[in-house]
């Protein structure tokens, strides 16, 4: 069993390495067009957003609608640090993410006591407050936004942060801490009665989610080199929620797959933005009515599952 797992890990690592170097080569040789490259970044950003929001909504069961707010905090703090103070990209990103996580704790502590729908509205309000405050700060350009950010975020950074986000949250979920979060989603009163400090875990999930949303913001700022408060409106939070629901509330692989596909479809239907959103909205409603746990539900796409689906009993499928 352990040996099998080891081989599996080696296989996954090898695949990731191949993907990394292949894309790196494609970018360096210029085979990838700028438009394709842009979508590559959007895929990475969306994966980070979806996976981190899934931790809060899908795994811990807390409907938070302020993800764009955390993203904005990460984007603005990191961008101010690199452009105005001249701090390198990595510490600036971390500072942005930590600031977002801190915001998560500050906003989470009082509001996570609230029942589901009140939490949704409180976090939504938080996102709007962040946006509103940014509009009022002339130092960061007010409503016109912050310009002149250097394009520090290169493919290695994007790959690294996406990988770190997924690994971090996957390992968190598959631990006693992750089980505590899922228990809260399933039945908060029972979780509390079994000795889980529900407030602590809700705030923890919330701040981890906020941290990575902050990372996504930093990447966004340092690739698109212009950030405006209105980029991080409530509609951005809804976008992230769409990905989580499409992929499945409580499925990390689902979130990743949804982030990839939705980004690609968005790129293809570029000229039909409203039609696309209408389709997404209808899909969202249909999924909620017929499959409320999302397309993949809580299932994960693993190698074992794939093998079983293909009917194979190859060497690493047989336990």
């Amino acid at each position: 069993m352990d040996k099998q797992r080891l081989w599996l890990n080696v296989g996954v690592a090898a695949t990731l390495a191949v993907v990394y170097f292949a894309v790196d080569w494609l970018i360096k040789t210029g085979i990838i067009t700028p438009f394709q490259q842009l979508n590559l970044y959007l895929i990475g950003i969306n994966i980070i957003l979806a996976v981190s929001l899934n931790l809060i909504v899908g795994f811990t069961g807390q409907l938070a609608l302020g993800h764009a707010g955390f993203m904005a905090v990460g984007a603005y703090i990191s961008a101010v640090l690199t452009t105005k103070i001249g701090i390198p990209f990595l510490p600036a990103t971390l500072a942005g993410a930590l600031a977002a996580a801190l915001m998560g704790i500050i906003i989470g502590l009082p509001t996570l006591r609230l029942r589901g729908d009140y939490l949704a509205i409180a976090t939504l309000g938080f996102g709007e407050i962040v946006r509103g405050i940014l509009i009022n700060i002339e130092y960061v350009g007010g409503a016109a936004g912050l310009i002149g950010i250097k394009q520090y975020c290169t493919w290695p950074w994007l790959f690294f942060w996406t990988l770190i986000t997924v690994l971090f949250i996957k390992n968190f979920i598959n631990s006693t801490h992750g089980r505590a979060c899922i228990a809260i989603r399933e039945d908060e009163i029972a979780a509390e009665a079994m000795g889980i400090n529900t407030t602590k875990y809700k705030v923890l999930a919330f701040s981890i989610g906020a941290f990575f949303a902050g990372i996504a913001g930093a990447i966004y700022a340092h690739y698109f080199f212009l950030i405006q408060p209105n980029t991080f409106s409530i509609l951005k939070s809804f976008d992230a929620l769409l990905l989580v629901v499409f992929g499945g509330l409580g499925s990390l692989t689902g979130s990743i797959i949804a982030a990839v596909f939705v980004t690609l479809i968005t790129a293809l239907l570029q000229d039909l933005a409203q039609l696309r959103m209408v389709i997404y909205a209808v899909l969202l409603i249909i999924i909620m009515i017929f499959r409320p746990q999302g397309l993949l539900g809580t299932k994960e796409v693993t190698f074992e599952v794939l093998c079983k689906k293909m009917g194979g009993t190859t060497w690493h499928c047989s336990k």
Binding site: S175, I196, L204
Partner: peptide
């Protein structure tokens, strides 16, 4: 889940 409170480890 019910084991959590007495046999947890740091995140």
């Amino acid at each position: 889940v019910a084991n959590h409170w007495y046999s947890s480890y740091p995140v």
